[in-house]
């Protein structure tokens, strides 16, 4: 086997009081099957924990799934923390259930992509690849 280079690394996280992780596990699985390294940090994390983990793991993508309605609180906080860590090259992707009008607002503050609940698995894989390619080498 040859050494695979430039494997995309993704950290998948659940933040806050949201105990539903079937969705993120499916996302993790389909990214794995697309040849990516997927780090899963489990339920009930804080934004601080997730960003510290993303920095140590040097991921390309930080994917946060929120089904609790707290997205307008959590994502600005995460963006802020990424700036504090000088880690803005880590691309933030939101997933889960949220109103359409919030999607635009989230992208405005720096969320790279928002993938809602009806996104097919292949579209998730494609979005991740497209974002990483657009960012370029770092």
């Amino acid at each position: 086997m040859t050494v695979p280079s430039n494997v995309i690394r993704v950290l998948i996280a659940k933040v806050g009081l949201d105990g539903h992780d079937r969705g993120v596990k499916i996302v993790a699985r389909c990214l794995r099957d697309a040849g990516m390294d997927v780090i899963y940090t489990g339920l009930h994390r804080t934004p601080e924990e997730v960003v510290a983990a993303a920095v140590q793991e040097d991921v390309d993508i930080l994917g946060i799934s929120i089904l609790s309605g707290a997205h307008m609180t959590v994502f600005p906080k995460v963006i802020d923390l990424l700036k504090q860590h000088e880690a803005e090259d880590i691309l933030l992707v939101g997933g889960g259930v949220m109103p359409d009008e919030d999607v635009g607002a989230l992208k405005e503050i720096g969320v790279a992509e928002v993938l809602l609940q009806d996104t097919p698995p292949q579209a998730i894989v494609d979005a991740v690849r497209r974002l990483v390619e657009a960012r370029g080498p770092r």
């Binding site: 494997v7 993790a28 390294d37 997927v38 899963y40 983990a53």
Partner: peptide, 12 residues
């Protein structure tokens, strides 16, 4: 994975 080359890293 020996098939896709991907992985789930869950120790954290």
């Amino acid at each position: 994975s020996p098939f896709s080359g991907g992985s789930i890293l869950g120790d954290r």
